[in-house]
């Protein structure tokens, strides 16, 4: 009788362990964890981008160095995001910002360079729009899980 009770207890524990293992095995994370450095890069590039975009009413040729510095920082942030495992969604978001033919930051810089300078109304609207675009990247980062599976 005691042996039977002991076997029953072992069997229940084994079942629980199997159940945990099944959840753990099928429970691989699908998205990168929150990354403090990525968050800092995103917020600092946003601030820098908005300062440079606001210069769009002035001659592009006077701001070549500002644009070059901004592009370098933006590409550093993109490369950092790209290097984080399971960070495909954030990487795709950066690719939209970096598309020179798109309607985001690099598209704005291309248009500015091509036209020399841009209208005051356009620059004001674009500044708000690019700010909102960066917010989508930042808000996703802020809401990523803070601890890994089982943590």
């Amino acid at each position: 009788m005691a042996l039977l009770r002991r076997l029953n207890s072992v069997s229940m524990t084994a079942t629980a362990i199997v159940l945990c293992s099944i959840i753990a095995i099928t429970g691989c994370s699908t998205i990168a964890l929150y990354n403090q450095k990525a968050y800092e890069l995103e917020t600092s590039v946003k601030a820098e981008a908005l300062i440079v975009v606001a210069m769009g009413t002035e001659q592009f040729s006077s701001h070549v160095a500002d644009v070059k510095a901004l592009k370098l920082d933006t590409e550093k942030a993109y490369e950092y995001a790209k290097g984080i495992p399971k960070n495909e969604i954030s990487t795709k978001q950066w690719e939209i910002i970096l598309n020179p033919k798109g309607g985001s930051l690099y598209g704005f810089l291309t248009l500015w360079e091509k036209n020399g300078k841009l209208s005051k109304e356009f620059v004001a609207e674009k500044d708000k729009q690019i700010g909102k675009q960066f917010d989508q990247i930042i808000e996703l980062e802020e809401n990523k899980p803070k601890t890994g599976l089982g943590g």
């Binding site: 969604i89 954030s90 985001s104 675009q133 989508q136 990523k144």
Partner: peptide, 21 residues
């Protein structure tokens, strides 16, 4: 055109964020 395209990009960024969330 750049502003309209910018909103389309913003929508894509927003949907990517939703999918990430």
């Amino acid at each position: 055109e750049s502003l309209v395209q910018g909103d389309s990009d913003l929508l894509e960024l927003h949907m990517l964020k939703q999918s990430g969330l």
